[in-house]
Design a binder for these strands. Sequence first.
DNA 1: CTAAAACCTGACACCGGTGTCAGGGGCAAG
DNA 2: CTTGCCCCTGACACCGGTGTCAGGTTTTAG
Lengths: 127, 127
Amino acid sequence: MRIGELAARAGVSVRSLRYYEQRGLLTSTRTPSGQRRYAEGDVERVRFVQELYAAGLSSGTIAELMPCRYAPSRHNSDATLERLAHERERITAQIDDLLRARDTLDRMALLARAHRETLPVPEPVAG
Amino acid sequence: MRIGELAARAGVSVRSLRYYEQRGLLTSTRTPSGQRRYAEGDVERVRFVQELYAAGLSSGTIAELMPCRYAPSRHNSDATLERLAHERERITAQIDDLLRARDTLDRMALLARAHRETLPVPEPVAG
DNA sequence: CTAAAACCTGACACCGGTGTCAGGGGCAAG
DNA sequence: CTTGCCCCTGACACCGGTGTCAGGTTTTAG
């Protein structure tokens, strides 16, 4: 398929797909005139990339993990396991950060609501 | 206390503290010569800022939430509640992203390990 | 008094994924 | 052939918290 269709189906911009190719996250065949053509499986591949981006992995790291996912072999799995463990640790720490911050926000919201009721205004808002 | 001490005790750089002041997240009194002086409570305040930064809140958003934390009143709590709810939602979504990605990494690690045992090499590496 | 350490302001750089513009092909439908 | 849409490359901008350098002042220790 052409790049516009892949972008639409994977939910990313055309710009991003070209960038992924440049970073080695995605490959395409080219028509004689130079236009990119993609296979069906690339939709899933792009979603995979997005999923890891959403978790804060860099394009370099994702590039390193791609073969483990799409062309696993003894050769690549060794070095990759360390990277996997490292990223897992980072993600877990990040989740902890988020949970802590969310708790803090919740406490602040409670406090804010308490202040609202501590000082009731005659006619706050009818509706 | 002076800025260097606050930086050390809060675990951030001096540069960051000046930036926080510029963004309205932190205030300082000045000595006649212009040097910043901070109160004890600012240590906690800086940690609070860091906690929210770690959860992806921007300095602008944090600035908006500061009064809710350190000077709560009917006046500010109203508009802030919406912001709090919004950020909470964002954080929760982010946690979901991280959990999904972590699961994916875990599956990849399993796959990698499986490949290792599927194709055992005679003498991988002795030491 | 002097030297070192700490502080000041201001400015520029970085990262990295994405938006966007410019200027130029390719290709199907009419 | 023309029109219109999609594609190509290359380049610049952005965000935002932080590092870092320059050039200068203040404080502190000896």
